[in-house]
């Protein structure tokens, strides 16, 4: 997992899908843009998350971020994953996850035209947080020990926001992985 304050390898929210760079014909998979973003609809069961994460580990992939929550369909959850596919071909992440019976639907949205949102909730020592509010933060509470704020945005904006927090005497940060949704228009 990637922890706080590490620059996350966020997907470009609006970008052309990269040309397939895998070599044709018998060649070993070469390192390339190694981060895939996947939106996975799964059966909500006690084994599901461990099967998904176990598969990612044993295929030599690496979870950079993961967000899980119920979907609008009963008994089904949505997992949003950022995965480093390591030495495997980029498409292997989707293909391998597809083999799990618990996985109902999977979309690789890397480089696709999607909304990508991450949530950060932070505590700062400052009571004046004008700079944060100007960036779009919402104040959740203020007390004698400081202020709690929340901010949602794309990965890069969240990173910028966290850098801004440092100037306000950051005390603690909790941050989600991204969730993604294809754009309507």
């Amino acid at each position: 997992m990637t922890f706080l304050h590490n620059e996350p390898p966020h997907p470009p929210a609006v970008a052309a899908r990269p040309e397939p760079t895998s070599p044709q014909g018998g060649e070993v998979n070469r390192p390339q843009e190694r981060v895939r973003v996947l939106s996975v609809l799964v059966e909500d069961g006690s084994n599901t998350l461990s099967k998904v994460s176990g598969l990612i580990r044993r295929r030599g992939f690496h979870v950079l971020s993961i967000s899980v929550g119920p979907s609008h369909q009963p008994g089904r959850s949505r997992i949003t994953l950022q995965i480093d596919h390591g030495h495997a071909e980029a498409d292997q992440v989707r293909k391998q996850l597809e083999r799990l019976v618990e996985v109902i639907q999977i979309e690789d949205v890397t480089g696709e035209d999607v909304h990508s949102r991450e949530l950060v909730v932070a505590k700062v020592s400052a009571s004046e947080v004008k700079g944060l509010v100007e960036r779009g933060a919402k104040v959740l509470d203020t007390g004698p020990d400081g202020t709690t704020v929340e901010f949602a945005g794309e990965g890069k904006d969240v990173c910028d926001f966290i850098n801004e927090l440092i100037r306000h005497g950051v005390l603690d940060v909790a941050r989600s992985g991204p969730v993604v949704m294809r754009r309507t228009a």
């Binding site: 070599p23 014909g25 018998g26 060649e27 070993v28 998979n29 071909e89 293909k95 597809e98």
Partner: peptide, 28 residues
Amino acid sequence: LADFAPKVKTFIHIDIDGSEMGKNVRPH
């Protein structure tokens, strides 16, 4: 792998498991 079937112009791969495609050799 780098020396496998070096003169092949067309790799054809047939398998029931889609994850086998390109796992080791990328077929044409």
